[in-house]
Design a protein around this nucleic acid. Structure first.
Lengths: 239, 239
DNA sequence: CGACCTATTGAGACCGCTCAAGTAGGGTGG
DNA sequence: CCACCCTACTTGAGCGGTCTCAATAGGTCG
């Protein structure tokens, strides 16, 4: 059930059989959600963490006047609120961009696991560090990249993160977002997202239609975005 | 020597005497740097982590055409590259915004410490998680806040982080940056930073002069920035 | 069939950018 | 001691990237 998570962890380091078995045994209840549902609420006390099995979720914060900013897109196999194990209450919401299936892992089991398998604890810590690296890359996008560059970068990052878990490749991938969702991710208006998509399409780099991303020119896209997968901490390049 | 770090860790949870002693014994060589120096280089293999004792440093990335985006400001007491313990190579540079004093801690000593004191390891992990929370807040700033709001938020965050380590309070604090530095932090042009500072001054919220921040109206500043220190994780309880 | 969500396009406004010019202060050398 | 830097800051003017408002079309589903 948690194969995608295991694949991801193996990108970071070898995972022993005992560790893998132990991890499988921590998992608890499975749950399903619909697009628009909020899985994890800001500031409520948490006692379990969540592994995304299928679908797309994102972290976001709402400002008081209705502006909403997304902070990260999560893909299947991600441990979407691993930080809650230590933080207990998190500072943002996690919402569904599509129908979603998750499995919960009680904090106490994870904590016991970390004691028994220090190396696995390090891997999980590393998972949260890579989340932070992804955040930093988004900061660069939002602060220094133009709208086309930013959107190109989003498409590159999604490809690089979806490929290892078998949900796409450098030619394209399913991407069940609306243009309004992308606006929240990219810090752009819906209207400008539409125009930016058109520009990427007209430049023959990538097209987004019927909730599918089709990459026409990976190298061109990478060059435009100045995308460098180093921050994703995978040993191998998405190739 | 590492009192400020200890203060910071105690904001997150109690720190036992044995833990404190052990932490003090991990520290190694002290080093000094000048404004403009890069302390930690992107992608070079690291064998030690760095605690900032005095001065200000920041993380940044340069894009190929000269654009530079800062990702985080670090203040004394911060463990500025704790993530390098697991990542070994980091994806950004850490540079000095003022004369700086640091102390290095060999990774191997930190790793031994984590084995011997699991609770301390959790505290250090939490330190990195709060870095990630700070990153998320910057994402909100860059993606959804206007230039005045964004700058107001920076001043609020700096106050909240400097106060516990005794380097300022809600009335103000020393802030040895130039306006050009602030431009890189905020993702704005130098010219616009200048105008934005003027606006904050004219609105009697805050003034920045001679490398000192003077807060005239804390509540007004907080309201404008929609600043909520929850994400800084002070008073958290990891276990 | 009507209601609603999503995508598309046009038009004009505005925020923040670039280019440019000028001031102020601190260090250095003749 | 002054002349001349150099860096940091300030302000003006015009440009342009992105926003908002508005209108339309297509798809889906009760």
């Amino acid at each position: 059930m948690i194969e995608k998570l295991l694949v991801k962890l193996r990108l970071y380091d070898v995972l022993g059989q005992a560790e893998e078995d132990a991890l499988r045994q921590t998992i608890g209840r499975v749950a399903r959600f619909n697009r628009g549902d909020v899985i994890v609420h800001s500031r409520t006390e948490l006692t379990q963490a969540t592994i995304l099995l299928s679908g797309f979720v994102y972290r976001f914060r709402d400002l008081s006047d209705g502006r909403r900013q997304a902070m990260e897109l999560s893909v299947p196999g991600d441990f979407i609120d691993l930080h809650s194990v230590l933080m207990k209450r998190i500072d943002h919401e996690i919402g569904c961009l599509s129908p979603v299936k998750v499995v919960f892992v009680p904090h106490e089991r994870l904590e016991a696991l970390a004691v028994e398998f220090p190396h696995l604890a390090r891997l999980l810590w590393l998972h949260t560090l890579i989340d932070a690296a992804i955040h930093r890359e988004w900061i660069v996008s939002l602060g220094a990249r133009s709208s086309v560059e930013r959107m190109a970068h989003l498409f590159c990052e999604a490809a690089a993160r979806l490929e290892p878990v078998g949900l796409g490749d450098l030619a394209g991938y399913p991407f069940p977002l609306t243009q309004a969702d992308m606006a929240e991710l990219l810090g752009l208006s819906l209207v400008h997202v539409n125009r930016t998509l058109r520009e990427l399409r007209e430049r023959d780099l990538v097209s987004f239609k019927d909730h599918k991303v089709q990459i026409r020119d990976w190298d061109g896209l990478v060059a435009l975005a100045q995308f460098d997968p180093f921050y994703l901490g995978m040993n191998r390049r998405p190739r």
